[in-house]
Design a binder for these strands. Sequence first.
DNA 1: CCTAGGGCTTAGCACGTGCCAATCGATTGT
DNA 2: ACAATCGATTGGCACGTGCTAAGCCCTAGG
Lengths: 344, 344
Amino acid sequence: MDPHAPEDRPATRMPTMRDVAQRAGVSRQLVSLVLRGGPGPSLESRNRVLAAAAELGFRPNASARLLRQSRTRLIGMMFTALNSFEVRVAERLLERAADIGFGVALGPITDRRTTEIVIRELLEQRVEALACFNPDPGSPALRQALGLMPVVWLGERSAEPRADVVRTDDDAGLAILVDHLVALGHRDIAFAGGLGGTVGPDRAATYRAAMTSRGLADRIDQVLVGFGEEDGATAARVLMARVRLPTAVIGCSDHCGAGLVATFARAGISVPGTVSVTGYDDSDIATLSYNDLTAIRQDVDLTVDATLDGIQRRLSNPASSPREVATQATLSIRSSTARARTNA
Amino acid sequence: MDPHAPEDRPATRMPTMRDVAQRAGVSRQLVSLVLRGGPGPSLESRNRVLAAAAELGFRPNASARLLRQSRTRLIGMMFTALNSFEVRVAERLLERAADIGFGVALGPITDRRTTEIVIRELLEQRVEALACFNPDPGSPALRQALGLMPVVWLGERSAEPRADVVRTDDDAGLAILVDHLVALGHRDIAFAGGLGGTVGPDRAATYRAAMTSRGLADRIDQVLVGFGEEDGATAARVLMARVRLPTAVIGCSDHCGAGLVATFARAGISVPGTVSVTGYDDSDIATLSYNDLTAIRQDVDLTVDATLDGIQRRLSNPASSPREVATQATLSIRSSTARARTNA
DNA sequence: CCTAGGGCTTAGCACGTGCCAATCGATTGT
DNA sequence: ACAATCGATTGGCACGTGCTAAGCCCTAGG
C-alpha cells in the first residue's frame, strides 16, 4: 500500500476541453468555440463536439474561465441568513443577476463570520461589485472595496460618500401607515421598536414625525424594543400592563408585529377588535392567515432593481457619482387593522 | 527612495503578486513563498513583502489558486433558503468546514433555480464533495456527481446507494414525543402532516407506528397537510370543525406547530389548557414566548458533524462504502404541552 | 586562490480556458 | 490556370498562482 496520503489523487477527474476534443477528434480550440456558441464551426463539428461533451459530462472549469477573462461578472452579496427580507433579496438578486449575465457570490454573516472576513472572501473571488446589508463601516476590506468597485449599501442610511445606498423610504412608508390608521379613526397609535442599527432609531423618529405632522404629538407612545418576534411579545406585555391599551400598535417589523398579535391573542385580546396591529416588511410572516398583518411592503423587486441598476451604472461609468435610492413603500392592507374601538 | 509614488495610484485593478514583488523589490516567487508561510525567506525579505502586501491591499486571486492546485478544498452545499433548519445547517457547515481548511460554495434552491442548475454550478466550481438537502433524484448533474465525489444526502431517506445519508432519527423522535404526551395522560393524539417529499409520509408513518405500539391504534388521527405555518393553520381549522377536539396535536414541523397554536389562540382555544401542541425541529420559532413549543430537536451540530465526517472519510478513502447516519433526536419540553384535560 | 556547501532567491513550467492571429482547404473570379 | 476570397480549423499566448529545480552570494575549509 502507498503510505502517502491518497487524498491528492481524486478518484475520477472531471473532464476538460482537452478530453472532449480528443473524443470528438478535433482541436481543443474548436471545442471552446463551439461551447461558447461562437460563429465558425460547421454543423458537423458542432454536433460532434456537443455529443462528446454530453457523453463525458463536461462542465467548464469556472476558475479557469474567471482567471482568463478580465471580467468575472460576479457580484458579491453580504447578508444575514437569519433575516427573511435579506434572504429574499439575496435570492432574487441571484435570479435577476443571472438574467443579465452576472453570477452572485454569497457571503452570509454569522457570529464567527464578520463583515471583514466575508468581504475579504468576496474580494478574493474577484467580485466586480458588492451589495452589503448593514455592513460594519470600520472594516478595512470594506474600505478597500469602496475604492475599487461599486458598493451598494443596503438597508440603512450611510454616511459613506463612495457607496450607493438603497433603502426603503421609511418616511413615506410610516406616513401612509399612520394615515391609514387615522382614517380608521385611530388616534392612540403606539409604536413598538426603536432599537437596532441605524434603521431602528430611524423608523422611530419617522413615526414621531408622522404623528406630529398629523396633530397627534401628544399621543406619541413608543415602546423601545428591537425587530424580533420576542421584541414584539415584550412590547405587547408592556402595553397590556397599562391601565389603558392604545387602539393601534405599529410593529417595527413583521416579526415584531407577529409577536404583538400572538401575545395579544394568547391574552384574549382581540386583534383587530380591541387593538389594531401592523407589521413592516410584508414578508411571508405577514401573510399567514393567523397574522394577516397590514404591513408596509419593502419591495424586494424594487430593491434588487435599484441595486443592479446602481451596479451597472457605476460599472459602465466608474466616474459616476454614487446615489441614494429610497424605494417606494406601499401599504398592504389586511385584517389586522380595523376601525378603532369607540369606547377607548 | 523609490522613484514611484504608488500610494495614490488610481487603484482600478486589484494588485497581484507581481505588483507586490515590484513594490518590495523582490521576485514574484518570493512573494508567493512568504505569503504561503513557507521556509526559506529571510526575516528582512519577509517583512518587506508583508509590508508591501499590506500597503497595496493584496488579496490572493482565488480562481488562480484553485486552478493551480489540484484540490479546491471546496464543499458544495445545496439547500432551501426558506427553511430555517437548512439555513442553520448551512451556516454551521460554513464555520466548521473552515476549521478543517475547507471552503463552502453555497447553492440555494429557489423557484427558478432547480437541483439541476444548482448542482451544475457547484460542479463548475469544482467542489470536491456535495451536501444536498432533499435533492431531486432525477437530476443528471446529481447522477454525475454521485459517480465523481462524495455526496451527502441530507434530511430524508434515500434509495441512492452511492450517497451518504444524514437525517434525524424520526422513529426515535416521534416515539419519545408520543411517550411524553402519553405520560401527561393524552390518548387522543392527532398528527398534522404527511405531505411533502419523502420526509412528510415518513413522519406520518412513524407517528402511526408509535401510536400502534403503545396500544393507541384506534386513536390514530391524521390531518394531511404540509410543513408550513399555513398548513398548521389549515389543520387547526379542520380539527376545530369536529365535534370533539383531540387533547394533543403533533405538528410535523415547528412552522406547522406555530400555525396550530396561533389559529387555536385566535379561536379562543387555550394551549395547552384545552389542547397540547408540539413542533418538530426546535428552531427559533419554537422558542418564541407566545409559541413556546415542546419540540423534537433536530441537532444542527450533530448533522454537520456527521456530514463532515462522511465527506472526510470518503475523500481519504474513495472506496469506502456510503453510510446512513440517523442523528439522535432529543425532546425540548416547553409550555405548549401539559396534562390532558380530563373531561374530553 | 580555489572549491565545497549552505542560506536565499529566482527561473520556468503547469493548471484550463478565452481569444487573436495564422493556417488550411475549397470555391470563385478573371 | 492562377490568384483572391471565404469558411473552417488550429497555433499560441495570456490570466495569477503553486511548486520544483536551478541559480546566486557568501563564508569556511584546504
